[in-house]
Design a protein around this nucleic acid. Structure first.
Length: 486
RNA sequence: GCCCCGUUCGUCUAUUGGUUUAGGACAUCGCCCUCUCAAGGCGGAAAGACGGGUUCGAUUCCCGUACGGGGCGCCA
């Protein structure tokens, strides 16, 4: 029987980088040991859960190619025998109710009639007295009459779990080792809201047990929930899964990565021109490493080399610059066709290459392959092959204002007019010959030629660029540029 | 305030008591290559928070301090 791990996001916003990394580590753990990776949607927050967010989770995971073995599918179907995989649906089907009833019957839980206002007042009071803000258990011993009185007022109770007050709760975390909490610091947490919907802490426990999870791998922002959850497992008579708490991802200021640090939405990285393989590779290295500190992983290699023992206890700062470098590495590794496919949406969006010859476009895109850091920058770097030349002022100033520029262009034009084979090598030979005959250095011809046809000083290798542009366009642009020289 | 956790180059990290002049990667600086920009090659600068122990020997083990983070909801 293989391991069973899950990614259990709440659909209350976009899928963010931190969530994707948690999903990734679970996915890798499952793949490494031949287990199952399960997706469960924790939509017990009736206020904030949305279908659009669920869709965003699907989109993000699918884009990143983290496919799940069990869980809800985007087309509405369900994969796996432990469903449903939406907690709201499970609640509706009464999955949690019987365990609530069980705890109530065993006197391990009780009704609490406190209103949100009363609880708020209590917390304020406690904080004023420099006490930790925690529910004080006042409803533990409500008499029958008191309950009736509350009901008569129309109050709906929540169900609270009777947390042990003495001793301590310990567990062995796969990443952090022994962790222990004093039970006196725990409190009677709500396990069912007045609406009848279970709270997160209760639903996770029930579902992780019912879905037979062997390991719970999640962010360490959950570490302080763990002792309470372990008490719940015990009260229900269940063994808890093995816990592993991943360190958080931080922004440059050292706090948990969030919107104010810039893009945190996974789909935003797609829009910005990142390759999913690059993002995944980068994310894997945030808080995890191999003993030899390997940086780049071939397809399938991460699944093979991942090891929970290589996980870091301390948080990792997200570095967009390194991600860019890595994205560039992956872009460079693409075949000509794959690069074109990846770049296509961005080129289409720019619009200038509509109806262009595909094979020629592929060649043009591949021309500057080693330069791209993101797919998004491709259109701008190749636009002059299709759109009119826009002259960069600094380039005009620097190159065309040279006294030799005009003569250089004239010499190049003369040679190129006579050239039949308009391909890289003859083009270069002709340019060099033009330089020699007019007493110029090769560079004094090359630079004006480059600016004349592209408007920029930076660009692809010159003669390939001329070849792909073709004789007509090159001559037309060179003649036009004559007017810009002194 | 209380609880939990963490602390190696600017950043991600290797190191599990001696093999270490603490290694790699990004970024940075220099050189080379070169028709530009990149890419690539070579090289440089750059780190064990602090204070106590334990030990023949601590980055590595223990304690304390400092700093940082996370949590303390009828949110997840």
């Amino acid at each position: 029987m293989g391991n069973r791990v899950r990614f259990a996001p709440s659909p209350t916003g976009h899928l963010h980088i931190g969530g994707l990394r948690t999903a990734l580590f679970n996915y890798l753990f499952a793949k490494k040991y031949g287990g199952s990776f399960i997706l469960r949607i924790e939509d017990t927050d009736e206020e904030r859960s949305t279908a659009a967010s669920t869709q965003a989770i699907f989109d993000g995971l699918l884009w990143a190619q983290l496919t799940w073995d069990e869980g809800p599918m985007p087309n509405g179907e369900v994969k796996g025998a432990y469903g449903p995989y939406y907690q709201a649906q499970r609640a509706q089907e009464g999955v949690y109710q019987k365990f609530i009833d069980q705890l109530l019957a065993e006197d391990k839980a009780y009704q609490c009639y406190c209103t949100p206002q009363e609880l708020e007042a209590m917390r304020t009071q406690q904080q004023a007295n420099k006490l930790p803000p925690r529910y004080d258990g006042r409803c533990r011993r409500l008499t029958g009459e008191q309950k009736e009185a509350f009901k008569a007022q129309g109050r709906k109770p929540v169900i609270r779990f009777k947390m042990p007050k003495e001793g301590e709760t310990k567990f062995t975390d796969l990443i952090r080792g022994e962790v222990s909490f004093a039970n006196k610091d725990l409190y009677d947490l709500v396990i069912q809201k007045a609406s009848g919907i279970p709270t997160y802490n209760f639903a996770v426990v029930v579902d992780d047990h019912l879905m037979e999870m062997t390991h719970v791998i999640r962010g360490d922002d959950h570490i302080s929930n763990t002792p309470a959850q372990i008490q719940l497992y015990r009260a229900l008579g269940w063994a808890h899964p093995i816990m592993a708490h991943l360190s958080m991802i931080h922004g440059p200021d050292g706090t948990k990565l969030s919107k104010r640090h810039g893009d945190t939405s996974v789909i935003e990285y797609k829009k910005q021109g990142y390759l999913p393989q690059a993002l995944i590779n980068y994310l894997a290295l945030l808080g995890w490493s191999t003993p030899d500190s390997q940086q780049l992983f071939a397809p399938g290699e991460l699944e093979q080399k991942f090891d929970i023992a290589g996980c870091q206890k301390s948080p990792a700062v997200f570095d967009p610059v390194k991600l860019q470098w890595m994205n560039g590495e992956y872009i460079r590794g693409l075949s000509k066709d794959a690069l074109y496919e990846a770049a296509k949406p961005f080129i289409d969006e720019a619009g200038f290459a509509a109806g262009a010859d595909t094979e020629r476009l592929k060649d043009i895109v591949a021309l500057e392959q080693e330069k791209y850091k993101t797919l998004k920058e491709i259109p701008d770097l190749i636009s002059f092959f299709y759109a009119d030349v826009t002259f960069d002022e600094a380039a005009v100033e620097k190159v065309f204002k040279q006294p030799t520029a005009k003569a250089a262009l004239e010499a190049a034009i003369a040679k190129y007019e006579a050239l039949d084979s308009f391909t890289e090598q003859p083009l270069e030979e002709a340019a060099r010959a033009a330089a020699k005959e007019s007493g110029l250095k090769a560079g004094q011809i090359f630079h004006p030629a480059r600016v004349a046809v592209s408007g920029r000083t930076n660009g692809p290798t010159l003669f390939k660029m001329l070849e792909y542009m073709g004789k007509d366009m090159v001559l037309k642009r060179m003649r036009a540029a004559l007017g810009l020289t002194v």
